[in-house]
Design a protein around this nucleic acid. Structure first.
Lengths: 177, 177
DNA sequence: TCTTGCATGTAAGTAGTTACATGATTCC
DNA sequence: GGAATCATGTAACTACTTACATGCAAGA
């Protein structure tokens, strides 16, 4: 259960609402964590009951009110404890590869079409991540130092997408022949 | 829910017991699917109730009896249907990156130690996958044709590990400085 | 008018993990 | 004597998804 820690880590960087967290999971940190709004709101409730976070209701004009959550000292301690314990290697469950493995049960066009669609979305993600990287690289060096570790996670996203794209191109070519 | 289809795909290639499937998930196809024995046995029960697979009890000497499952025609049809429908892109949830993102809450040595441990296990996996690749490449060309699609999934495993290893080396260097 | 974005939630169901449970054989 | 491999399962729990639910504002 690391959604808990993913939320704490994001709130440790900057306070925000459930909706703000959702946007981060759907974009900027989507290469390392994903969650639906239903899960996020539930977890925020649990975390605030455990007093790892607190919230203040912020009234807005022309928009619904929002609950702005921030991490507590307890929350920071919890994070520190968690960070110093080893995590298990990531579990891989990739349905696309299951399909490809059994791809002789369908035709080549079908496989290529699907690979191509996934490839398009990976290309978009990669372009986005590289753009974020550029923004980082143009920061003054003190800021760069500050964001060094998040930047390393971004690099993982970029290198991961790159490898995926290379593989997909290689595979599409191989299937065509 | 693709454990169902992962099992069907493996049984379509070759009949086997729950234990055989477990071994495959833990080694040869671990780069695309993972599951615990508890989940596998449960799913096998469900699949045989749905008549997508059947089993025969095989008596063994000096070993416990085993249930050897094989896919039925219904099972193959179910697989074909599933394979021709698009799958969603894979969800990423990587606790190690969460830790790194919040790595300023611990010390560098800690981060490097953990990265190094994960790196070791990725190096082992990569070496294993490359060895499997060599076995494939030494097959006669008719067999190569037959296993082309599973081989493409193996390539994904290899390229994925390669990218991970590159990233980890890059990151360890960056943190040291 | 219709879609997208903002903003939050509950309820029911599915998928996956952890803990518990057994028992023979083989290898160190 | 103890760990690893073979072989299968149940029960309780946690994590995650899908469906349901609301409502205003801005822009096309």
């Amino acid at each position: 259960m690391s959604l808990k820690h993913a939320i704490l880590v994001l709130l440790e960087t900057e306070p925000g609402s459930g909706y703000d967290l959702l946007k981060q999971f759907n974009s900027s940190v989507g290469y390392f964590w994903n969650a639906k709004h239903q899960q996020i709101y539930q977890q925020l409730k649990v975390l605030s009951e455990q007093e790892l976070i607190t919230f203040a209701i912020e009234k807005q004009e022309n928009r619904p009110d929002k609950k702005v959550y921030k991490i507590t000292n307890n929350g920071i301690n919890e994070l520190k404890t968690w960070i110093s314990c080893p995590v298990k290697p990531n579990k891989v469950n990739d349905a696309l590869l299951v399909k490809l493995y059994g791809g002789h049960l369908t035709n080549k066009e079908n496989l290529i079409t699907e690979l191509q669609q996934h490839l398009d979305s990976h290309l978009k993600t990669q372009a986005y991540l590289k753009q974020v990287e550029q923004t980082f690289l143009n920061l003054p060096s003190d800021k760069k130092k500050k964001y060094q570790l998040p930047y390393l996670t971004l690099r993982r996203g970029i290198l991961g997408e790159e490898a995926w794209i290379m593989w997909a191109n290689e595979s599409i070519e191989a299937i065509k022949k």
